[in-house]
C-alpha cells in the first residue's frame, strides 16, 4: 500500500495522460487514433477520480468511473460506426479531409 504522499504522483500522472490524449486528438489525422486518444483522456479523468476516491476513502469516485467506462464504451461504439460509415462514403478516415460540414 502506498503512502498518502504518493497520491500526488498519481494525480500528476493523470494530467500527463490527459495531455497526451489531447495532443493525439488534435494532432493526428486518423480518426481512429483520435478516438483512441479520446479514450485515453477519459481514462486520465478516471484515474484522477479513483485517486481521490481512495484518498477520501469514499467509493463514489469509483462509481462515477464505472459510469465513465460505460459512456466511453458507447462513445467508442458510435464513433467507430461513424468512422466505418464515413470510410464507406469517402474512402478515407482522415479527419482533415472531412470538412464538408462547414457549408
Amino acid at each position: 500500500m502506498l503512502p498518502l504522499s504518493y497520491f500526488n504522483y498519481y494525480l500528476a500522472l493523470g494530467a500527463v495522460l490527459f495531455a497526451i490524449g489531447a495532443v493525439g486528438v488534435i494532432a493526428r489525422r486518423n480518426a481512429l487514433i483520435a478516438l483512441m486518444s479520446v479514450e485515453l483522456m477519459l481514462n486520465a479523468a478516471n484515474l484522477t477520480l479513483v485517486v481521490f476516491a481512495r484518498a477520501q476513502h469514499d467509493m463514489r469516485g469509483q462509481a462515477v468511473a464505472f459510469l465513465t467506462i460505460a459512456v466511453a464504451a458507447a462513445e467508442a461504439a458510435v464513433g467507430l460506426a461513424i468512422v466505418v460509415g464515413v470510410f464507406r462514403n469517402r474512402r478515407s478516415t482522415q479527419l482533415d479531409d472531412l470538412t464538408m460540414m462547414k457549408h
Partner: peptide, 24 residues
Amino acid sequence: LGVAAAVYLAVRLGQLLWAAGPGG
C-alpha cells in the same frame, strides 16, 4: 497553439492536482 495549450493544461493541472494532494 493546440499543443501549447495542451501542454500548459497538463503542467498546470498537474501542478494544481499536486497541490491538491495530501500535504498540499
